[in-house]
């Protein structure tokens, strides 16, 4: 599962390749413990895991904010440890806590950081104008960012990525602490960045819905290691698949299903539960099957396998706790910054 075989039809180099990457902090804390993975160009890759799993540390090593203890790391073929400045030029980074300068206006934030990223002078102003419009910030462009909401600040950070147009964007928990509608908006923006501008995205999150919604592939991290890596579908299959519940007028005592439909895992007087790899595809087959056997179906419902199940299986710590804590930490961040 962990090995990422290279597709021979895609001779492209990987956007990011990590090999036995390790970070040991003081007191022998193994924050990242020999992880290997690669992010392909053009994909959205998710690092999913509870707090303390080592996601942020991994991102910080890629953006050269902290040095790896051992292992290798390449960004588009360039050695991160040997050529940090070249690597940073290809990367955009949105840290976990809000990092826009609240004492400047939105326009100034975009201007200053585009200059520091060496965006071409001729294109700069056009891009800033477009990005502000795109992120729905035009009307407040010349307001001091201090007066923005958390969601607006996040959008401004994504606008920075739009102006600087990095080849690869690193997003550390981009929707943490946002209300549901701002979260949806941020998700939409992330997808647009990926689809319209072809930006490769590495995103970390502890939110399975987010990972499921956004990512082409996911690595689940736990205690510094990658527990499992694959597409969301592969991971879900790994925990068994969807459960379809069929309510019948009466359940025949003896009945076996063809293999391609699924396996009966539970039955009682009026309903049976069937485990199947893909619920939506299995339902028509089931309907046909029951009709063929002249059994009347009253209703069918699916319980899709979700990444929660996967997460629970592979990440050791309890999730709800973490989500709660994480949200609170960010809230405090916002409060502090709102002064």
């Amino acid at each position: 599962m962990n090995s990422d075989s290279d597709d021979p039809n895609m001779p492209e180099i990987n956007a990011i390749t990590a090999d036995r990457l390790t970070k040991v902090y003081r007191d022998n804390i193994r924050a990242v413990d020999g992880i290997s993975f690669s992010v392909k160009q053009g994909e959205i890759f998710g690092l999913l895991g509870p707090n303390g799993a080592g996601k942020t540390t991994t991102i910080k090593m890629i953006i050269t904010l902290t040095k790896a203890t051992s292992g290798t790391l390449h960004v588009l073929g360039v050695d991160v440890f040997k050529s940090p400045e070249t690597v940073r030029e290809m990367l955009g980074y949105v840290p976990q806590s809000i990092s826009v300068d609240t004492d400047l206006t939105a326009y100034e934030n975009l201007l200053i950081f585009s200059k520091l990223s060496y965006v071409d002078k001729m294109e700069r102003n056009e891009r800033i104008k477009d990005a502000l419009e795109y992120m729905d910030l035009s009307s407040r462009a010349h307001d001091i960012v201090k007066r923005y909401s958390g969601g607006m600040m996040r959008r401004l950070e994504i606008a920075q990525a739009l102006v600087n147009r990095p080849k690869i964007l690193l997003l550390d928990e981009p929707s943490i602490g946002l209300d549901p509608s701002s979260k949806k908006q941020v998700w939409k923006n992330i997808k647009q960045l990926n689809q319209e501008f072809g930006v490769t995205i590495l995103i970390t999150t502890h939110d399975m819905n987010e990972a499921d919604e956004l990512c082409n592939r996911i690595a689940i991290m736990s205690e510094g290691k990658i527990a499992i890596l694959g597409t969301p579908e592969e991971l879900k299959r790994n925990v068994g698949g969807d459960i379809v519940t069929v309510n019948l007028t009466s359940v025949p005592s003896i009945m076996s299903l063809p293999k391609e439909i699924g396996r009966i895992i539970n039955r009682n007087e009026k309903s049976i539960q069937i485990l199947t790899t893909n619920g939506e595809e299995a339902i028509p087959l089931m309907a046909d099957f029951f009709r063929g056997h002249e059994i009347r179906v009253e209703s069918i419902s699916i319980n899709k396998a979700n990444l929660d199940d996967v997460f629970m299986k592979y990440a050791k710590r309890r999730l709800e706790d973490d989500m709660y804590k994480a949200t609170r930490i960010t809230r405090r961040d916002f409060v502090r910054r709102a002064r």
């Binding site: 400045e85 990367l91 809000i98 990092s99 950081f113 520091l116 060496y118």
Partner: peptide
């Protein structure tokens, strides 16, 4: 403390 410095260090500027 407020994250601006992290952002500055993550730009390609030396």
């Amino acid at each position: 403390d407020v994250g601006i410095f992290t952002k500055l260090l993550s730009t390609p500027s030396p």
